[in-house]
């Protein structure tokens, strides 16, 4: 039977890769140490595949056609693509997908009432590129991304994200064979970006989120409304939908917060969390 061998929640922000020295040295050191420990634990888990809960920033999915949930079924993903390598300062690279596996997920989802959209072409911005740059620097593990609309309201509810995550967890555990699957969720925690409050971070709200993740107390997170998140976590805080989906896939698993830093220079409350049984 397939097995979930690792689960990671972490932030993404362009500043993490394009100008790390911008951050205060102590903050940068603690945060990069958190990513390094995640990388070490992830490698030790020897995953065959990473299923990534992630969100677009209107790079791939536009207002012309905006899916709530979309599974990547591509052979490879640009993470980043040539157009983003300069701004992210990560060399353009192709990350392998696993289309047959993704297709199984898609079809099983439809059979179970989880109507995923699908995409054969995705160019990642910081969403996939930055976490993979830190977590899988050798680019040696294929990825199946599950995109959730966290950027263009109306957004799927956190409750629905948890349900979709629960389905993904059940799908993995129902598979025959000895697949070793890692889950990675990226985004958040609080940040206001592109709004008149750009640059604001709310460490109190971030700590509230982290405390619930640490206790596996997902229900209050899943009950959050768009308005509550927008008020307390900003438009960037809406990305915790990815974390909630991951937590839905591994009920009862608790978060070990390796690092949390409200990095003003990255305009993001940044965290690295190992989630475990």
């Amino acid at each position: 039977m397939a097995e979930i061998v690792a689960a990671v929640c972490c932030s993404h922000a362009p500043g993490l890769s394009n100008n790390p020295p911008l951050a205060q040295p102590e903050q940068r050191q603690r945060l990069e140490a958190g990513f390094a420990e995640l990388r070490r634990r992830l490698a030790a888990a020897r995953p065959d595949l990473i299923v990534m809960f992630v969100n677009d920033h209107i790079q791939n999915f536009t207002y012309a056609n905006m899916p709530a949930f979309c599974v990547g079924v591509a052979d490879t993903y640009d993470a980043p693509g040539p157009g983003s390598e300069r701004s992210l300062k990560i060399p353009a690279r192709k990350v392998a997908g696993k289309p047959a596996w993704a297709g199984d997920l898609l079809e099983s989802g439809h059979a179970a009432g989880v109507d995923f959209a699908y995409a054969y072409e995705i160019e990642s911005w910081d969403d996939m590129s930055v976490p993979l740059h830190f977590l899988v620097p050798d680019n040696d593990v294929p990825v199946v991304p599950i995109y959730t609309n966290c950027a263009a309201p109306p957004l799927p509810t956190p409750k629905r994200c948890r349900e979709v995550g629960a389905f993904v967890g059940e799908f993995i555990r129902s598979r025959r064979g000895s697949e070793r699957i890692a889950l990675v969720a990226t985004g958040g925690i609080s940040h206001w970006v592109g709004t008149p409050q750009t640059g604001r971070i709310d460490p109190d709200w971030d700590q509230w989120v982290l405390d619930h993740v640490a206790r596996a107390d997902v229900e209050p997170l899943a009950r959050l409304t768009w308005d509550e998140i927008e008020r307390d976590g900003g438009n960037g805080g809406q990305e915790i939908r990815n974390w909630i989906a991951l937590l839905g896939a591994v009920p009862g698993w608790k978060g070990d917060v390796l690092a949390y830093e409200p990095v003003a220079e990255y305009i993001t409350g940044c965290a690295t969390v190992w989630v475990h049984p």
Binding site: H57, I58, Y63, A151, A152, V193, G194, T195, P196, T198, G199, N235, A264, I267
Partner: peptide
């Protein structure tokens, strides 16, 4: 004008990407 664009219904991520240099932070 990032504030006006936000009030008029432009997506903040798009505002940020296109007008990055117009933000103080």
């Amino acid at each position: 004008d990032v504030a006006a664009l936000y009030d008029l219904g432009a997506n903040p991520y798009l505002i940020r990407r296109v007008f990055r240099g117009n933000f103080k932070k």
